Simulated scan of single mutants.
Amino acid sequence: EILHKENRHLCQRYMKYCLGITHLAVKNIAAEYTILKNFLIWLQQEKAISVKNADSNIMEKYFRLLDSKNIKEGTFNNMLQAITHFFDYLKVQDIIQKVPYHVEYYLKKEIYTHHNRSINEDVYMEMIHKLPLFPEKPRLVFLHLWALGLRCNEVCTLKGNAYYMQGRDAWIQVYQYKMKNYKKVPIPLALYKLMKVYIRKNGILPEEYVFQNSTGGAYLYGTFRKQMMKYCGKYGIGDGTYQFKSHDYRHTLATMFYDNGTSIQSVRDYLGHDFEEMTQQYIDYMPKKISKANKEYLSKEENSLAAGIKRCKRGK
């Protein structure tokens, strides 16, 4: 689709760099490629210009075109950053002298809106009660989501040696693909015992995936979600209207921890976030917590809004 030969060649080089050197996940690289491809296709319509010769005027024209499409601020900034990464690469490779625009000039202010994604207790308790009706593999994956708040891809890629005892406590070692590191979290003893039985029954070796697909590779998220959607509908979870989303259980657990007095720093460490701002996006019902604190404060007589009011005769 990128007909300009030089632009296509530079795009190919950049994609090889992204795959071989950067820490980006493949899906993020694919998303960045789509943004870059659209830009280069547009560029070839502008008198088949080489990206090496793109100046501030041509970039201004393209960014104004994007702006006219009423793209959300966050999406616009992602597109801007993807194109900037490409130009930064060209600069480092001495293909261009400088990036032909100032990225700070075009970045838009984002106003983050919090979306309540916690699952209603009635729904997940109904799921727990009907879980024996589900096939074994999705049933066990679900328990990891519900009890531990792990990302689904972290559960799907667990290895046979992930579960262990330390003293009297059961633990799990999880590789976080998003953070590119391991984390260890405590797990319920019941889940530990269930998984040990499952691993022994299926003869899973320490370095093999616990949850496998038909070829022995990692169980796919798409397969898991498809099965969960099927059986949630079949057994009428949430009156048959519940739409299963694995990441909602991560939000639910974070909210539950916070509502029960766990500090936001501890929730952040448990979830494996780098910054508290990310954790704050996971915690729902913040107004409920504030309302509860207000009620407790104002219930004390000395804190009553009417504490300083005294009766007096009319006119005085």
Rank of each mutant, 00 (worst) to 15 (best):
E60M: 13
W42Q: 07
S50C: 07
S68I: 14
K47S: 09
E46D: 10
F63H: 04
Q44F: 06
N77A: 01
K52Y: 01
A54H: 01
I71D: 08
A48L: 10
Q44N: 01
L40P: 01
S50P: 05
I49T: 14
L65R: 15
S56I: 14
V51S: 11
L66C: 09
Q81E: 06
R64C: 12
G74E: 08
E73I: 00
A48W: 05
E46T: 08
I58Y: 12
T75D: 01
F39W: 01
N53D: 11
K52G: 02
Q45D: 15
N57W: 10
L65Y: 15
S50M: 02
K72A: 14
N77I: 11
K72Q: 02
E60T: 15
T75A: 10
I49H: 09
S68T: 14
F76R: 00
T75L: 04
L43S: 05
Q45M: 09
L66Y: 10
L66H: 13
G74I: 04
M59Y: 10
L65K: 15
I49S: 05
Q45L: 09
N78S: 03
I49A: 11
F63N: 01
L40S: 08
M59P: 02
Q45H: 12
I41Q: 10
W42A: 02
F76V: 00
K72I: 02
L65C: 08
N77H: 04
I58T: 15
S56R: 12
E46L: 14
A54Y: 04
E46K: 13
L80I: 07
F76H: 05
K52F: 03
I71S: 12
F63C: 09
L66A: 06
I71G: 07
M59E: 08
L43G: 02
M59Q: 09
K72N: 02
L66M: 14
E60G: 13
W42S: 03
L40G: 06
D55G: 12
E46C: 11
L65H: 15
F76Y: 15
L65P: 13
F76W: 07
N57C: 14
I71A: 03
N57G: 15
V51Q: 09
A54I: 06
I41K: 06
L40V: 06
S68E: 14
F39H: 02
E46V: 11
N53A: 08
I71V: 06
S56M: 14
I41M: 04
W42T: 03
N77F: 02
Q45I: 06
D55E: 10
R64M: 13
S68G: 15
Q81C: 09
I41V: 15
M79E: 06
S68M: 09
Y62T: 09
